[in-house]
Amino acid sequence: MTWQFSEDRAIYTQIAEQVKLRIIAGIYPVGTRLPSVRELAAEASVNPNTMQRALADLEREGLLYSERTSGRYVTEDCEKIRQIRHGLAQSVAKEFFFRMEQLGYTRPQALKLAEETEEQGNE
């Protein structure tokens, strides 16, 4: 997963989203220590203060926690991670139906097309 940022939104919110995805995908596994702010900032080529701000947001959400001396860790609360994963999946699903609607598809038609496309992909 590489860090990518779009033009029109604040960088710290985009960092927070991408760290979230990495936690859900297990790139930063449950209960493990995150790289330092400076390391992450260098990796994403962003300002360390911006990275700090994004991580502080995730801490407020309860996805990360700090140990005063040893750094920042991914939460051990698997249920929390499941919830957030579920929330993200819901918004992806909503986005799908919204865009299909713009193309003139009803919900059943959109679902049917999704299944057909998946089957074709597996052939």
Binding site: D8, R9, A10, I11, Y12, T50, R53
Partner: peptide
């Protein structure tokens, strides 16, 4: 910078 992005989009 993030204020500019948030306010101006």
């Amino acid at each position: 910078v993030d204020d500019i992005r948030e306010k101006e989009g």
